[in-house]
């Protein structure tokens, strides 16, 4: 194998209590797209015209036909596809409106799915992930166990993608392991 997992040494899938699982999502193709000042609308138009995708508003993500756009800051998005693809070339035309930088290998992503996911994340993220506040389609970047961690809710199972700098992958894995080690913190949330 020429390509190595960011989580080398960690299991690919581990079952925690109550049918909640965590697994690494890799490889990914990810491009950081930063609109030039004043070109945000033009960029959004170009993305919509070319890929049929609406760039998300602050704190949200969108997806269409396998291409995902994740808000990363004002005028800043990550465009993402699963697997390795020539995404930089695919997006090249957006270069009139934005700066494009390949960050496919810069981050590591864990997918946490199942009924205990929220209870586990209580022990990791200083964010309100209550279903009345944080819903599928939302994304947030925060500090967790001294690392910058981005959390994205995919569905109501619930499923969350957690992403950190690739070099921190082992530490994020460990932090999740510690956060899920004990019995559920709040039985009310584990439904």
């Amino acid at each position: 194998m020429v390509e190595h997992s960011a989580f080398a040494g960690a299991q690919a899938v581990t079952a925690t209590q109550g049918g909640t699982t965590v697994r690494a999502i890799e490889p990914l193709s990810v491009v950081s797209v930063t609109a030039w000042r004043g070109q945000e609308a033009a960029l959004a138009d170009a993305v919509r015209a070319t890929f049929g995708l609406d760039l998300p508003q602050a704190g949200r993500w969108t997806a269409h036909a396998g291409l995902t756009a994740i808000w990363a800051g004002p005028g800043h998005w990550w465009l993402q596809r699963g697997g390795r693809s020539a995404l930089m070339q695919e997006l090249a035309a957006l270069g009139d409106h934005a700066g494009l930088i390949d960050i496919s290998d810069a981050r590591a992503v864990l997918r946490l799915r199942g009924p205990l996911a929220r209870d586990i994340l209580l022990g990791l993220l200083p964010l309100d992930l209550h279903p009345s506040v944080f819903t599928p389609g939302q994304v947030a970047s925060t500090i967790a166990a001294h690392m910058t961690v981005q959390v994205r809710q995919l569905d109501d199972k619930p499923t969350f993608d957690l992403s950190c700098l690739r070099s921190y992958a082992g530490s994020l894995w460990r932090a999740l392991e510690l956060a899920s080690a004990g019995p559920p913190r709040l039985s009310a949330l584990s439904a």
Partner: peptide, 11 residues
């Protein structure tokens, strides 16, 4: 103004 209210350890 972009992300909402957060703890100061994010800043």
């Amino acid at each position: 103004p972009h992300c909402g209210e957060r703890g100061n350890d994010e800043f």
